[in-house]
């Protein structure tokens, strides 16, 4: 297992797309979060009272993930689909014909690398956002805040895992991105605004993730951060398992 893991790590670190997509994830998430916090701080007095009462300083500093997650999805999708689009998968399976070992190595590589990037993103977003919120800021020592910051890192890592699973199912980059990007960027937010339908859409991974990385969470959503974690985890593991079952059966 270790040699395969090392080999997957060499693969990841020797292509540019890794650095570009992960750097973009960090910069966009931190940057957009900072902008949102700065705007909120300067327009605080004009915000409606309800908004101010429900204000979640931690969650606000993580607003950038709405856009940043797209770069993260691209990273995870490319790690798998570039093997197929280049024909390299045959070299890979020639070297490591044990498909379960190979997929585990890929998953662990993604979890390790994205885990580190996610922690960085979460902490930088949080501290920069709080600094910009000025008097409306919260502190890392306040109840639920540490959990939310780590929750952010966990959400990002699980999202990458989910994308890896989908990429193994679909194999080609464009279809994989065409499924994942609209889902997180459009479909889920839209369905969550439709009455009745939103009762189902509340269990989508991005909504569950928001419960995980907010301190107060959305009161419309009928579960808290712990359940949110397990819902995201179930989505990710589900996609990875289905991805593996297809990968194990299909011709390469």
């Amino acid at each position: 297992m270790f040699p395969v893991l090392l080999s997957e790590w060499i693969k990841v670190r020797t292509v540019r797309s890794t650095f570009i997509t992960l750097l973009l994830t960090l910069v966009v998430t931190v940057g957009l979060g900072a902008v949102v916090c700065a705007v909120l701080a300067s327009t605080w007095d004009t915000q409606p009272a309800a908004e101010r009462a429900n204000f979640d300083a931690t969650g606000s500093s993580f607003s950038g993930i709405a856009l940043g997650q797209l770069a993260l999805i691209v990273f995870a999708v490319l790690i798998v689909t570039s093997e197929y689009s280049t024909g390299m998968i045959r070299a890979t399976l020639g070297a490591v014909p044990q498909r379960l070992t190979l997929m585990l190595a890929k998953v662990l590589t993604v979890v390790g690398l994205v885990g580190v990037v996610s922690l960085l993103t979460a902490f930088i977003s949080f501290f920069l956002g709080q600094a910009l919120l000025g008097s409306h800021r919260t502190s890392i020592s306040d109840p639920g805040v540490t959990r939310a910051v780590f929750g952010m890192a966990i959400y990002m890592t699980l999202l990458a895992l989910l994308s890896v699973g989908v990429a193994f199912m679909v194999r080609r980059p464009i279809p994989a991105l065409a499924i994942l990007m609209p889902f997180f960027f459009l479909i889920s937010p839209i369905l969550n605004a439709v009455p009745k339908v939103k009762n189902v859409a509340h269990f989508f991974p991005d909504v569950a993730g928001r419960q995980l990385y907010s301190v107060h969470g959305n009161t419309d959503v009928p579960y808290g951060p712990t359940a949110g974690f397990f819902i995201v985890l179930a989505w990710s593991l589900g996609c990875v398992v289905i991805g593996y079952l297809l990968f194990a059966r299909r011709d390469a």
């Binding site: 060499i10 693969k11 020797t14 292509v15 280049t86 390299m88």
Partner: peptide, 14 residues
Amino acid sequence: AVHPGRTAYNHLLW
């Protein structure tokens, strides 16, 4: 059957 962005050396290395 090689990633075009990877060098020959790195391809053999992995």
